[in-house]
Amino acid sequence: MNPFASIGRATMTLLAHIGRLSTFTGTALAAIVAPPIYGRLIGQQIMRIGYYSLPVVGLTAFFTGSALALQIFLGGNRFGTEAVVPQIVVLGITRELGPVIAGLMVAGRVAAAIAAEIGTMKVTEQIDALTTLATNPIKYLVVPRLIAAVLCLPLLVAIADSIGVFGGYVVATQSMGFSGGTYLKNTVDFATQEDIVSGLIKAGVFGFIIALMGCYNGFNSKGGAQGVGNATTAAVVSSSILILAANYLLTSLLFSK
């Protein structure tokens, strides 16, 4: 096998993917502003993407907050900085861990579900059927999911932030000897608006990535059950990687001053 040919082929495939994804994104964004608006479908998706993600996001945030508090306490022991547990917990959760953990959990839950649903619709010709019924599939399937995800993720992250801080509070007051009042006062005094808002902006972007990758991979699934399986995997993997990459980019942009 010619190594140059395989490098060339891989490059071409990658470029084709980027091209298709850009076109898909452009079409979807154009469809958001064009009438009609399917309010009923957006409502349904808000339930499925936002409301039903609450348990998984809440639980992971709680345990992340607790573990973070524990790590800072034990690690801080070595140079006598145990007292800053509340400050570092709130900083770590709101700026970084809240949005990333919530984003990754929702990516696993929602991007997979979207890709599987749309992929199945694709291979059973339901998407073609939409077209024959004078309904634009992008408008009907993609736009409600994009809008719902971009709206829901910041709300989920706001809740994850609160529960994460609460997780730290529980561990700190139960096993580290912090007084509840001091812990909360330190948290509130230390956290700035910027810490919280930056996390919520990240969350909105992550929501867009999750819905977009779910829809894109669903629309491009081929063949039968296996094709849908591949699309689902690709949706979760690609949205997770993009979330982490975007997280770095956004962190450097938002805190570059």
Partner: peptide, 19 residues
Amino acid sequence: DKVMKKFGMLFQGGALFDS
């Protein structure tokens, strides 16, 4: 879309929306 309104189609597998 305007032209599509003239058409109706019966798909091989039905292609009904299962939701």
